[in-house]
Nucleic acid binder design. Structure first.
Length: 111
DNA sequence: ATAATGACGTCGG
DNA sequence: TCCGACGCCATTA
């Protein structure tokens, strides 16, 4: 098992902070951290993702991480009321920018 | 040093 | 919407 590196810790810490009902794409995480890339994030998740809410990390198109765990993803998403569109997450609504939930913006901040 | 690979992403057809 | 080709970046063969 590869030893944790600073990058991996940041990724895992961030994933743990993703609020229920929200998700982040691999690329979003890399961009948020300002280092590495989607594939690097994927490497981290495949190695140590078991200890964090991995189902909140999805592909940019909203599809789940692993096809064989699709049932598992769906179950978690439904449980957390994650906006879904068929078998994928509705990124337009579920994407988390990294900002704390705070109070919802009253007026439509959606661009 | 070169090529293949992977829990990815974007673009075109 | 689905799929293949490419691009990307670190790791491994």
């Amino acid at each position: 098992m590869d030893p944790l590196n600073p990058f991996a810790e940041k990724v895992l810490d961030l994933v743990e902070r993703i609020p229920p009902g929200k998700v982040m794409a691999y690329g979003d995480i890399a961009e948020y951290l300002g280092e590495g890339g989607p594939r690097q994030v994927g490497k981290v998740m495949s190695t140590w993702g078991g200890g964090v809410p991995w189902w909140r990390v999805v592909h940019a198109d909203g599809s789940g991480a692993a096809p064989d765990h699709l049932r598992e993803c769906l179950a978690h998403w439904r449980e957390e009321d994650t906006p879904l569109r068929g078998e994928r997450v509705d990124m337009r609504l579920a994407r988390w920018d990294g900002r704390p939930a705070e109070h919802e913006r009253s007026s439509a901040d959606f661009q």
